[in-house]
Design a protein around this nucleic acid. Structure first.
Lengths: 198, 198
DNA sequence: CAGTTTGTTGTACGATCATTCATTTAAACG
DNA sequence: CGTTTAAATGAATGATCGTACAACAAACTG
């Protein structure tokens, strides 16, 4: 019983997610969030709890949507190496044209929170582990298909995770598509077997 | 004439630099800076201007000391590839034992400021360009000495810059030395000529 | 249609922020 | 030593922050 909610919680959360993604946590006042969500403070606190709770919910939503979609691409391709190539291709597209020009919410938040909020840091760690695991699986597949040079293998996943985090940082200074492609291509070329001359 | 300053400006700046490095800009109140510097607000404002000015000075100092020392290592080695290896080795040491466990002040600040302060963003861009240039020079030297595999060269510098930025992010979650070494070794192994079997 | 319960509204509160300034202190100069 | 000038002090200011709450509105229950 009682009055029904006049807004969609997930829609509002998406708006908050967008703001946190663009501006960071400390630099986004609750007032700005309320304005963007078209909600009064009371409604926000009733629905989400504190500002930190709202942020936590936004990070969770980011992991379940944006991040999950990207990671799924890694192992949804016909070959291991191709999965990696497609992952990076879409990442770069989103960094040039789309929302990833703001970097990655988790990378941004890791930098902002790792030293002061162990609970959030643990969430970010889960994300990194997922990414690493998917990279390792793709590399294992690529190796079994003879796509990798000797010495490269699942252990190389850590390097790819670092490259992605680095690209997320660099994306914030709006580099050209070519520069980003160069980064990804160089990283993958270092793992792939030498191509036969065309 | 007049009363002389009772503190060393550079010493105070180093203290502020340390605090900004650990906690970020937004998360470091002027009050905390004053306490750490053992100075009253008036003295700080007289010496440095605004909080943003103090931060700018701290970033400049970081670039001139911490960052310059690290970059100098790249091309201070007997061979190109060896310079890169030494750069990463010292970077990893500082991430495990030293102040680099807080990441890199510039990487942190790039994430915090790129989208909202073009002037600071330009400073960070200079840093990235310096790093890229040094990497490219080392790679050119390495190539001319036959240390690189075919396909690798100065253009690969962008990938190394991304790897470093990524490691700076990952460092904040205190990874083990082994994980960091794996990242650096994998990145360099992808560029280096195949080693003869021992 | 009353009563209960829940959501919404808008204001207001205390804390904390960056910054200022009148006052006091001390070094340098004649 | 007295005057001048700059630095240090520490409280105060106004703005902005996250959050709470009293008043009002609406929907479900019986």
């Amino acid at each position: 019983m009682g009055r029904t909610r006049g807004f969609e919680v997930e829609e509002a959360l998406d708006v908050a997610l967008d703001l946190f993604w663009q501006q960071g946590y400390d630099n986004t006042p609750m007032q700005a969030l309320c304005r963007a969500m078209n909600l009064q403070p009371g409604s926000v606190y009733a629905a989400f709890g504190s500002k930190r709770d709202l942020f936590t919910a936004a990070v969770r939503r980011y992991m379940d949507t944006v991040s999950a979609e990207a990671i799924d691409r890694i192992n949804g391709a016909p070959s291991g190496l191709q999965g990696l190539r497609e992952y990076f291709a879409h990442l770069i597209d989103a960094m040039v044209d789309g929302k990833r020009s703001r970097g990655c919410l988790i990378t941004n938040s890791l930098v902002e929170f790792a030293a002061r909020d162990p609970e959030l840091a643990a969430m970010f760690q889960v994300h990194l582990a997922r990414l690493q695991t998917s990279f390792a699986a793709a590399l294992a597949r690529a190796r079994s298909e003879g796509e990798l040079r000797p010495g490269a293998g699942p252990e190389s996943a850590d390097m790819l995770v670092a490259v992605v985090q680095g690209m997320n940082v660099l994306a914030k200074s709006r580099p050209g598509r070519q520069a980003l492609r160069n980064v990804a291509d160089t990283a993958l070329a270092g793992l792939a077997a030498a191509e036969p001359e065309t």
